[in-house]
Amino acid sequence: MSRIGKLPIKVPENVAVTCDGLNITVKGKFGTLENKLPEVLGVKENDGTLIVSVKNEARTTRALHGLYRSLINNMVIGVSEQFALTLNLQGVGYRAAVQGKCLTLNLGYSHPVKMDIPEEISVEVVQNTTINLKACNKESLGLFAANVRSWRPPEPYKGKGIIYQGEIIKRKAGKSGKK
């Protein structure tokens, strides 16, 4: 049995969870998330906790047990608290701005980079170089942050690029020159 999969999921009071067959829906103050479970898994609700159960002990079933327990837990946390990511722009002239439903990045290219912001993600730019992202769906939040970061991933020589809050970039020495 999966160590993660057998842990109970605590459901806050302001979150409603409905399980009808293989479909699970989680509603909270920040939105509604849905997911479909594989046929080898089931979800039981007891006094404000959810327990993910398995129907057999095959290797793939044990792997799915832990995965879907984590996905359901992320759904519950997302609709009750929201997930947040912060991106920092480090480099001379690197700037960000939100214009309607579009994120505009100036990253040293000859043109500004414009990205459409998905509906479920809220973007806030602080001091032109800090981007705060919030969403109830952890997967879509991470994917959007990775797409923003892919325009200028951090480089190890000067430390320039788009960096996650708290991320440490290992620096390299570079060329020494003639002696």
Score class of each variant (00 low, 15 high):
Asn88Thr: 12
Lys172Thr: 05
Met115Gln: 09
Tyr157His: 12
Lys101Arg: 13
Lys36Met: 10
Val15Ser: 01
Ala135His: 04
Leu71Ile: 06
Asn88Lys: 15
Glu81Gly: 02
Ile51Phe: 11
Arg152Val: 00
Ile24Tyr: 03
Gln165Pro: 00
Lys158Asn: 12
Arg59Asn: 08
Val43Cys: 13
Asn106Ser: 10
Gly166Ile: 04
Val26Gly: 01
Gly28Val: 01
Lys170Ser: 02
Ser176Gly: 15
Gly174Ala: 00
Met1Ile: 09
Ile168Leu: 12
Gly48Tyr: 13
Leu107Trp: 03
Thr61Ser: 15
Glu155Asn: 14
Ala58Thr: 13
Val15Pro: 13
Ile168Phe: 04
Val43Gly: 03
Phe30Glu: 01
Ser110Ala: 14
Lys175Leu: 10
Thr130Tyr: 03
Pro38Ile: 06
Lys175Tyr: 11
Gly93Gln: 09
Thr86Gln: 09
Asn46Val: 15
Leu22Glu: 14
Cys19Phe: 07
Glu155Gly: 11
Ser70Thr: 09
Ile72Gln: 07
Gly28Phe: 01
Ala58His: 13
Gly31Gln: 03
Leu103Cys: 05
Ile168Tyr: 08
Met115Tyr: 10
Val123Met: 06
Glu124Arg: 12
Gln165Val: 00
Gly142Trp: 00
Lys158Phe: 14
Thr60Glu: 14
Val148Met: 10
Phe30Asp: 00
Val98Pro: 00
Val52Met: 06
Leu71Arg: 14
Tyr164Cys: 02
Gly161Met: 01
Ala84Phe: 00
Ser70Lys: 12
Ala84Cys: 03
Met1Tyr: 09
Asn128Tyr: 12
Val98Ala: 06
Ser80Lys: 01
Val17Glu: 11
Val17Pro: 07
Val15Lys: 06
Thr49Cys: 11
Ile131Leu: 07
Gly5Leu: 01
Lys158Trp: 13
Glu13Phe: 14
Leu41Gly: 07
Ser176Thr: 08
Arg69Cys: 04
Glu139Tyr: 10
Leu107Val: 05
Ile77Met: 09
Leu141Ala: 11
Arg171Cys: 04
Gly78His: 01
Lys114Val: 00
Lys175Ile: 05
Gly78Gln: 02
Gly28Met: 05
Gly66Ala: 15
Leu143Cys: 00
Leu41Pro: 07
Asn23Val: 15
Gln165Leu: 09
Val76Gln: 05
Pro8Val: 08
Cys102Glu: 15
Ser110Cys: 03
Met75Ser: 04
Val11Leu: 09
Leu89Trp: 09
Asn46His: 13
Ile51Cys: 05
Glu119Cys: 02
Pro154Glu: 07
Thr32Ser: 02
Asn73Asp: 12
Ile121Phe: 02
Leu107Gly: 05
Leu67Thr: 06
Thr86Ile: 11
Ser176Phe: 02
Ile169Pro: 05
Val113Ser: 09
Thr60Val: 12
Ile9Gly: 14
Ser2Cys: 13
